[in-house]
Design a protein around this nucleic acid. Structure first.
Lengths: 112, 112
DNA sequence: CAGAATCCTGTGCGATACTG
DNA sequence: CAGTATCGCACAGGATTCTG
């Protein structure tokens, strides 16, 4: 199998600014947060926290705020006692599904 | 179109450790370096440098070493004067093509 | 041309404690 | 339960200079 140098769609670097994408999904916890919300649906704060091994509240909060800022997740607050906050993937994030699936296939392939 | 919560293949988080992947392709210049080498074939050091806006020699060198360490690129040295070093994507990196294409489609979709 | 060697800095990340 | 508020450090990132 040979590498054909001039294959679209990523041939034109200027059209696909990887640094921008890296900013969106960079950060130690963003990929895992997105993966969970995209493939497993809505989660409450502590549900996320429990599923993500090693993350602290402070860090999780920061990354969630950043993702919200970038329009990748939505945050729904219920004015109750005790408080309830639900996080979901936005359509923009859900559209990343293909990318995650490609990542996943690649990863499995590397192991074998 | 609705989000179906229980769709493979990324359902089992433990099988797809995003933090590991983030380590491989994280870093400010790695994605762009990989994209260039994967889709545009072999490059010499200064060719890469010219194509990547804003990167310094030191940073490019570091990221290239890290990528080499992770088996994503190969480095071929020609014992000549002046020295020549060629960087190429390994098969492992070339297999990331699908992921890059998914990223690219997603990015274009966001703009429109 | 393709780097190595230094030195410096911002901030990503984290531990801890406190709150409505 | 779901956060804020502080503090601190390591390290990624960068500017600059030197070299075979």
């Amino acid at each position: 199998m040979t590498l054909k140098p001039n294959i679209e769609p990523s041939t034109d670097t200027s059209l696909c600014p990887m640094p921008e994408i890296a900013k969106l999904i960079g950060g130690k916890w963003k990929l895992i947060v997105l993966q969970i919300l995209i493939f497993h649906g809505m989660h409450r704060f502590n549900e996320l926290r429990r599923k993500i091994d090693g993350v602290t509240q402070a860090m999780l909060t920061k990354q969630l705020r950043a993702l919200e800022q970038d329009g990748l997740i939505s945050r729904k607050i219920y004015p109750e006692v005790p408080p309830r906050v639900e996080y979901s993937a936005t359509q923009k994030a859900i559209d990343l599904r293909e990318m995650f699936e490609a990542m996943h296939r690649w990863w499995l392939n590397q192991q074998g």
